[in-house]
């Protein structure tokens, strides 16, 4: 890995220069009490005072709705056109946990039956994480094997050293390319111990106890107890940086149409409903169990990793105040 520094007051110039190359820059912006990744016209629109963005950067690779293809219908003769994804994007300000999530997401979508759309978007995107100086009660990255110091899945990782400069870890070739494009902004440096600058997120549960324990409670009442409060919306899945389920929908007029994929959630009753009316996951507790099992057991079986990065978004968004931390602790204690 290469190491650089960037003066914090050079950040606006960095973004302007990136934009001049035709790339889109997304950075955290405030709306109401929440922060979202968005484009910006001027640097002062960027919000640096946030623990976590409300939505994860997964939508850059896996948009909430995207075209699979379009077609034209010429009297029953169909001509199909694939989307061409050319737009180059730089995402700034995601947290290191999101990098871990993107690494998982890419692994899931690209390793077996690789997904072209996600691959193209990934090739076109550079992810810059901004290491956490603060955390809240819902952060639990250190309980799931990550930390604010993590660089996995980021192309560049920025740490505000508190001395007017960012310490920049160049994690990937793509990150290197971006840094190399603006040599006058970045200065070389050696590896620095950044941990002192970072948030100290407490460990809430022991993953090594939890992972083997979860399948053993599959048939218990624990899921019903935990999920009676669940109202069956998809908010947790949609804000989750690793949730990847989707639906496929067609839209058309008589001459042309589009096949789209859009986010879906295993929390919805319709998700598994058969045309016959039979529903394999009949009640909400089955759906809640599936969500937790997927993150902490099925992913481990299929991909040798859990698929929760401890970003805490599902907790912050839950209309009923459900907390995965609490639920995992209750599994650990069961």
């Amino acid at each position: 890995m290469n190491y650089k520094t960037l003066n914090t007051n050079k950040l606006p110039e960095f973004f302007e220069k990136i934009k001049k190359t035709g790339k889109t820059v997304l950075a955290p912006r405030k709306k109401g009490n929440k922060t979202f990744f968005a484009t910006f016209d001027s640097f002062d629109q960027i919000n640096f005072d946030y623990v976590q963005t409300a939505l994860s950067p997964k939508s850059v690779l896996f948009p909430r709705v995207e075209e699979l293809f379009t077609y034209k219908n010429d009297d029953g003769t169909y001509s199909v056109k694939e989307p061409e994804l050319k737009n180059e994007v730089v995402v700034f300000g995601m947290r290191p946990c999101d990098g871990v999530a993107l690494d998982y997401l890419c692994d899931f979508f690209l390793n077996e039956n690789p997904d072209k759309l996600l691959q193209d978007r990934k090739n076109n995107t550079t992810f810059i994480s901004l290491a956490c100086k603060s955390f809240d009660n819902d952060c639990f990255c250190t309980s799931v094997g990550s930390s604010p110091a993590e660089t996995l899945g980021s192309d560049l990782c920025f740490t505000d050293m508190g001395n007017g400069s960012y310490y920049v870890e160049v994690v990937t070739d793509k990150g290197q390319k971006l840094v190399d494009a603006f040599p006058d902004l970045f200065a070389d440096t050696k590896e620095i111990n950044k941990v002192e600058q970072l948030a100290q997120v407490p460990v809430r549960f022991e993953l090594k106890n939890l992972v083997p324990k979860i399948p053993t409670v599959f048939e218990t009442n624990i899921w019903l107890d935990q999920s009676l409060a669940c109202i069956g919306c998809g908010a947790c899945a949609y804000v989750c940086p690793t949730c990847s389920c989707f639906d496929v929908q067609d839209e058309c007029n008589p001459k042309a149409g589009t096949r789209l994929r859009c986010w879906d959630s295993c929390a919805f009753g319709q998700f598994t409903l058969h045309a016959s009316g039979h529903n394999p996951r009949e009640v909400q507790s089955n759906r809640w169990r599936n969500r937790v099992m997927h993150k902490f057991n099925y992913s481990v079986q299929n991909m040798n990793t859990i698929s929760c990065v401890g970003c805490g978004r599902c907790i912050r968004v839950c209309p009923a105040g459900m907390s995965i931390i609490e639920h995992l602790i209750s599994v650990e204690e069961a």
Binding site: N113, D247, V248, M293
Partner: peptide, 19 residues
């Protein structure tokens, strides 16, 4: 088994039974 499916290639998640 004939669970609901949307993608056919192990991505959309609809047909999952356990892992």
């Amino acid at each position: 088994l004939e669970n609901r499916m949307k993608c056919g290639v192990g991505k959309c998640g609809h047909c999952m039974v356990g892992n």
